[in-house]
Nucleic acid binder design. Structure first.
Lengths: 216, 216, 216, 216
DNA sequence: GATGAATGAGCCTTCATTCAT
DNA sequence: CATGAATGAAGGCTCATTCAT
């Protein structure tokens, strides 16, 4: 028994029912241990959630930052960032969902700490979009709205993507990159021959097996 | 005192903290009545949620269906549908959020009933996109993904739109129509001179005052 | 059902087993109500204890202050104070015991508030003893020790006095007054013909029926 | 590490917070060992308390019995017994307090065993008082009450005596002897020239350092 | 001798709901 | 219409204790 198993059980239940609707006894049962034993691995139910969220957000920031380092070209950076975002979300759909939905379940202190991480991540998108517009590679009626639409779109992948679905992950990633280029009127020809896709990382907190949704 | 006030209080708290984390006493306090009195307006906490969700989904279906009746032209239908979606979501952000997030809080019977309504609403988008592709007005690598991205994008408006923000609702709607046209490679010139925006309806369950987010 | 019954049950159990060893379910059972109902009468287990203690200490201070007002003569004041102390303790043995023993069970804020009340009460004894020594009516090797011994002695009554015991309350009170005079070398002849005994007050929190001890 | 350290930690915490409010983990932390290790030194939390109490009561009985053997004179016996009692209580205040307060925490079997020891100890006082009255050396309105007052008074020393306080232990002891003589109208002149004070024993369970109270 | 992991029972408290008033 | 009182069930968490290492 280790903390990974507990985290996986927690993520599965939190994603399915929500943090508030999931009991400690339920968590224990899902992890195959007594509910009291959970307190050997974590100080409280909330701390368990914080650990999961921090792991997720740290990984997202790391993966997004790495994407920006692939090239100095805004269009390539956009493609790499969108690919990384979609790849991460599709690979860790439940953890990503928990990290997005359950911010509100946190105490004020924890919430502001986690919100800071999320803001850091979102600013990666803002940087790329703004610079692309500034140097004339992108164009958009409203940069902020375009960025928000972009992220929301990619995050939505967690709701429906399945490894055994109709499309491979790489296909989905390329598709989203294409849509992102369209939204920002970027020249997708600049991407030909460039390998901007990095293998997404798998979080320890992501439970194995089928995600929430039915295949599409 | 009427049921509208109770619903508004419920939506405000459910949107902020989630259904499971909101107590009956808390609902009563927010509505200015004793918690026991809530049971004069509804049979149970879950039924209160169902009433709110049904009101929201019914209105979305009505507004989306009306949008499709504006024209037979796929591009105009798309614009009208996206406008209606964005308009509704921006006008009733908290109710829309509750209707989206709290499906999981329902008992199986209620959940399937509500899910059916949501599926009906989503099929409006599917119809338009598919017909537009079939007749050659739209093009997309993957119709399903394009549709999902479209909806997710529009739903995201609930997270950040504010009436007192930088952009008017009409501006936001036109912006999203433009992005939708880009994603589907639709000819937005076909929309010139056509008034596809209908005034969005305000739900009784939507609490007055500021939404969740800070202005963008 | 009223709060008096709950307080009586609490005092009975706290006196017998201690605050920490008494459960909320036990309290409810002793009061004949569901344990959850206790929270209609008080905010927490500790608050219940605080209410009991405050009621006791307030009454002790009132009774002690009244005793000092009977006369300006130190010896009469001493007799009245000792009588009041013994009378109160014998009449409310369980409540008095709880107020004495369970100070340590309180949170720091509540403890300091209660300790202040107790200090106020003890200072009544200190005043009398000091003034009696100053004007030459009393003599003692050490005033502080004499006062402490005096109080401890009287408080001990709670451990063994029983209404159905060998001695009446008035007899016990006179006996303790005699011992107090001896300790302080006061002239008990000064008390002849003076009625320094006031009827002790019965606290609402004191449970009816037999006290803790066996008769002596 | 030895059982003495464990007992000292236990006495310190039991005296400060009570037996029921002290956890095994807390005991371990105070003794500098893992909570499970405590079970190498004792069979259970209650047994730990019993060991402490038995050690205390045995020592009190031994010290009281030795005092009675100093002389056949009731007044000298009284002085020796009171001195021993005060000396023991002042030297082992925390252990004495635990032995007095926590009788109620014991299971019925252990409680009756410990109560028997305490009764044995109290009977030492009863013997002396009764014989002194019988032979005419003492006089009291009520022998039982005088004895109880005597003991309670002496026990109270644990609440306030401090080695670094205003008075030396010998002074306190002489003071209490004087008060005892007054209460029983004994002729303290009979004590002149007689050394009735024996050095008090220090229990292994008594934690070093400052006692509970502030100096007086 | 010492400990980290583990657990069933129990802790205090809050829950959604009912009902007499 | 409205509420205060009441409750069984469940909430998160801590308890004393055991045991393999």
């Amino acid at each position: 028994m280790n903390i990974g198993k507990v985290q996986q059980s927690a993520v599965m239940l939190f994603a399915r029912q929500g943090f508030a609707a999931t009991g400690i006894r339920e968590l224990g049962a899902a992890a195959g241990i007594n509910s009291a034993t959970i307190y050997h691995y974590t100080g409280s139910k909330e701390e368990l959630l914080v650990q999961v969220m921090r792991g997720c957000l740290d990984a997202m920031i790391a993966s997004g930052s790495a994407a920006l380092r692939i090239s100095a070209e805004p269009t390539v950076q956009l493609a790499a960032l969108v690919s990384a975002h979609v790849g991460f979300t599709a690979t860790n759909p439940l953890t990503a969902r928990v990290a997005e939905y359950e911010m509100r379940a946190l105490s004020p202190e924890n919430r502001s700490a986690m919100q800071k991480l999320r803001d850091d991540y979102e600013s990666l998108f803002a940087q790329v979009v703004e610079r692309g517009i500034r140097v004339g590679d992108f164009s958009a009626d409203d940069a902020t709205m375009a960025r928000l639409a972009l992220m929301e779109m990619g995050t939505g992948v967690a709701h429906w993507y399945r490894p055994d679905g109709r499309l491979t992950l790489a296909e989905v990633q390329r598709n989203f990159v294409a849509m992102a280029c369209k939204i920002l009127s970027a020249d997708s020809a600049m991407l030909s021959g460039i390998d901007f896709i990095r293998p997404p990382m798998h979080l320890a907190s992501e439970p194995p097996g089928a995600p929430l949704a039915t295949a599409r």
